[in-house]
């Protein structure tokens, strides 16, 4: 076909991917799933000093329908896991998940009967963030890493089998 053959195989789709990826990555709207202590650092990330809006991400939406990335900040208990999952299911695709803090990533210091030992047991996670709590800078680190993932994702299949990234 005309244009495809003139420009080379896959040229258009890759260019489109790049364009859409660029647009997506710079307008990520987070859904702050603030559960416990890490949520305080998540709030700090939005404060005048750290100013999350430098990354085009200050539009915290508490409605899953309007958000692209869920930041799970805090300890997820078994009771809460169902709620987290339900909210994740309500998010429109494409959607990404950041596990913020040791608790969300692995259960952290809470080896007990009621804490889920890592949210990857019931959610696909894109970036794990180390720290208890991660400092806001580390959260930004995670967000920038996520932006890289988003940039590389394709239009049709946004989750193109990326391994989760761990930032620390």
């Amino acid at each position: 076909m005309g244009l495809e053959s003139a420009l080379g195989e896959g040229y258009l789709t890759t260019q489109l991917d790049a364009l859409v990826g660029w647009a997506r990555k710079n307008s990520l709207w987070p859904m702050p799933m603030g559960l416990s202590c890490c949520a305080i650092e998540l709030m700090s990330a939005g404060d005048p000093r750290h100013d999350i809006s430098r990354f085009g991400m200050e539009v915290m939406r508490f409605s899953p329908r309007q958000s692209d990335v869920m930041i799970v900040a805090g300890t997820v208990t078994y009771k809460m896991a169902h709620v987290v999952r339900k909210i994740y299911d309500q998010m429109a695709e494409p959607r990404w998940v950041i596990a913020m803090g040791a608790c969300a990533s692995s259960g952290g210091m809470f080896r007990s009967y009621s804490v889920v030992q890592g949210i990857d047991q019931f959610l696909p996670v894109d970036v794990f963030t180390a720290g208890c709590p991660p400092r806001p800078e580390n959260l930004f680190n995670a967000l920038i890493k996520l932006q890289e993932i988003v940039q590389q994702s394709s239009v049709l299949d946004y989750r193109n089998s990326n391994e989760p990234i761990i930032v620390s």
Binding site: K79, M80, S114, V115
Partner: peptide
């Protein structure tokens, strides 16, 4: 309550 019950007392 209980959505953040982390079992401190047991720990």
């Amino acid at each position: 309550l209980g959505y953040l019950h982390r079992g401190y007392e047991k720990i």
